[in-house]
Design a protein around this nucleic acid. Structure first.
Length: 568
RNA sequence: GCGCUCGUAGCCUAGCAUGGAUAAGGCGCCGGCCUUCUAAGCCGGAGACCACGGGUUCAAAUCCCGUCGGGCGCGCCA
């Protein structure tokens, strides 16, 4: 409804301009922004742009426009000129009952968008996580997974048809090293799968690094795997699956889901990698000496892209091209990648362009580093996602214990699990993906700051109020009289929800939604503080408002992959 | 060295895409609020020349150029 309000303001303005035969300034059309409360709910500085054309001061134009604006039948209560701006005031009393009715009718569908299926809007494949099956996923992968999963949820809710994919790098050197290691030492069965594989990997890697004979053995394994040696295939698949089982366990616990797991080797086996190279051979970009490579300087990429080694084997990027062609036949592609993949992303885009395949969209997030050092699976220097989750839950348990010492252990554990995981997810999505993060335990486990417990707590508070409405006043008719400032802020925030979902999906920025929810929770906490609900004069209305807030918080939390808790 | 990217109070971040009216929060610090819906909450205070220097503009944290500082990349690794 907030969006409608904005549209109404826009149409009203355009009408005035048409009346006065003024063209809207530039291609930028008319901009709106949200001013501080005193200046209304939505505001436009359009008069500044018009000033030159009309040879009048912005102030005069604004005053003149305001006199002629027609707001009949809209959600606009009032329009006022101020310092050359035109400020629109939302008619809260009018919008409140409509908004509440809408939320009540739609419930978990409130905020859901609709995207028309046509040529412009194909299905979307979001590839994320895609960690190597050589050990557990660490907090760097976690950033990928959480951004990817949250974005998928947001876009799905916004109406896109989304399929999420995990690309399994089974043809890389890392897995070959694991397979090699597995032939010399046994898996420790008591350990979690991915940790057991990590042990093998670290040990094997060290040995291989120090011995060229071993290196040759690893290369031989890779060659055999690529050429389709049945016995070797079995070994690779066993190792990858074994590790993946552990990885999936972690992801599942964090509420991260993939619709499809795609094996890199598929594209070699079905010879689509070969076909890619064939197709590129017909272009002027492909060069050949001992190796086959692409010259992408025309695309501003100085580094040549090697497609095939002199021994006839392919490289990671070559297979990735085949994978991307396959994906693009099924939909538009979004890749969530770490900053180390920036160059690959460019090379991939250029190559797909050459082939006439629609390029993917890349969401490139910066690294999470440890204070003073960066993470490395190979060296065993990293904080795993499991550790982070464990610690977070442990910390959450201490907090529940402090507050609800008398409740049962099962209850407390359940709360801690969901608060802990929510905190991990939220702390990662809340910061925009282009910012590098230095991981510090104090920050990660900080439950005091406005984070997911803050939101979950707002939700729990709303639930408690509704629960205590024994008479069922929620379902009575209500009239809206004069609203308090807290009520107004709540109504506005709730009305913005669908708009935020849409923007967050469209701009591919989960952080937008995350920051919105914090704001909503904050507004609700203040309302809770100042405006008594139960047994108040406007009890029925307020109960309805609380209900609408509850639904909006619930939907937001679900999209963020955080469990709404009725008690905490 | 070249390319990409980030730089907002002691610390962490929002805002930057679509330039606009006194830069928004949190942590930490100081001081308040539990006899009525859970204090994982709320209120007040101190704290910022938005890294620096230019430019474009009526208007720049936001756009452009440069400098400095951090990160990432520049493998016949993945």
């Amino acid at each position: 409804m907030f969006e409608e309000f904005e549209e109404q303001a826009l149409t009203a303005l355009k009408k005035v301009m048409k009346l006065k035969e003024i063209e809207p300034p530039g291609a930028s059309d008319i901009k709106f922004e949200e001013p501080i409360e005193e200046y209304g709910d939505i505001s436009t500085p359009v008069c500044f742009d018009l000033a030159r054309v009309l040879k009048m001061s912005p102030r005069e134009i604004a005053e003149d426009f305001v006199k002629k604006i027609d707001i009949k039948g809209t959600y606009i209560k009032e329009v006022r000129p101020k310092n050359g701006y035109i400020n629109f005031y939302l008619d809260y009393e009018k919008i409140a009952p409509k908004l509440i009715k809408k939320v009540k009718d739609m419930k978990d569908e409130y905020g859901r968008g609709r995207i028309d299926r046509n040529k412009e809007n194909r299905d979307i494949i979001i590839e994320h996580t895609s960690a190597n099956p050589d050990g557990p996923i660490h907090i760097g992968h976690a950033r990928n997974a959480i951004i990817g999963d949250t974005l998928s949820r947001i876009m799905r809710f916004a109406g896109y048809n989304i399929e999420t994919q995990f690309y399994i790098n089974d043809m890389g050197r890392q897995l070959a090293v694991v397979v090699w290691g597995l032939s010399r030492s046994k898996l420790e069965r008591t350990k979690k799968n991915d940790l057991a594989i990590l042990d093998i990997y670290i040990r094997a890697n060290k040995m291989v690094e120090e011995n060229t004979r071993y290196q040759n053995e690893v290369s031989e394994l890779m060659r055999k795997y690529e050429s389709g040696d049945r016995e070797v295939i079995k070994q690779f698949e066993y190792a990858a699956n074994y590790c993946l089982e552990g990885i999936r366990e972690t992801l599942e616990r964090a509420g991260i889901h993939h619709d499809r797991f795609v094996w890199e080797s598929t594209f070699v086996r079905d010879s689509s990698v070969k076909k890619v190279v064939e197709r590129l051979k017909g272009t002027r970009y492909l060069k050949e000496n001992e190796v086959i490579y692409l010259d992408l300087r025309e695309f501003g990429i100085k580094k040549e892209l090697i497609l095939m080694r002199k021994d006839g084997t392919y490289l990671y990027t070559t297979r990735d091209i085949a994978y991307h062609i396959w994906k693009s036949e099924r939909g538009d592609v979004i890749d969530v990648l770490g900053a180390d993949h920036k160059l690959v992303a460019q090379q991939l885009s250029a190559t797909l362009k050459i082939l006439g395949v629609k390029e993917p969209e890349f969401i490139i997030y910066e690294f999470i580093s440890l204070p003073g050092k960066s993470m490395s699976t190979r060296k065993g220097v990293f904080i795993s996602m499991d550790e982070l989750i464990e610690e977070s839950i442990k910390r959450a348990y201490m907090e529940v214990e402090k507050r609800r010492p008398d409740d049962g252990v099962k209850f407390k554990k359940d709360i801690a699990e969901n608060v802990g995981i929510g905190a991990v997810r939220f702390n990662i999505v809340r910061t925009s993906h282009e910012k590098p993060i230095t991981f510090r335990w104090e920050d990660a486990l900080d439950f005091e700051s406005q984070g997911s417990p803050f939101i979950q707590y707002a939700y729990a508070r709303a639930c408690r109020i509704l629960e205590k409405d024994k008479k069922g006043s929620l379902h009575e008719d209500f009239a809206v009289s004069k609203l308090t400032s807290h009520e107004k802020r709540l109504i506005k925030a709730i009305s913005k929800f669908p708009y935020v979902v849409k923007n967050s999906a469209r701009s591919r920025r989960p952080s937008l939604l995350a920051n919105y929810v914090i704001e909503l929770a904050n507004i609700f906490h203040r309302f809770y503080m100042y405006d008594r609900v139960l047994n108040s004069e406007t009890e029925v209305f307020r109960l309805n408002l609380v209900y609408a807030t509850k639904v909006t918080l619930e939907n937001s939390l679900n999209i963020l992959g955080i469990k709404p808790l009725e008690k905490m």
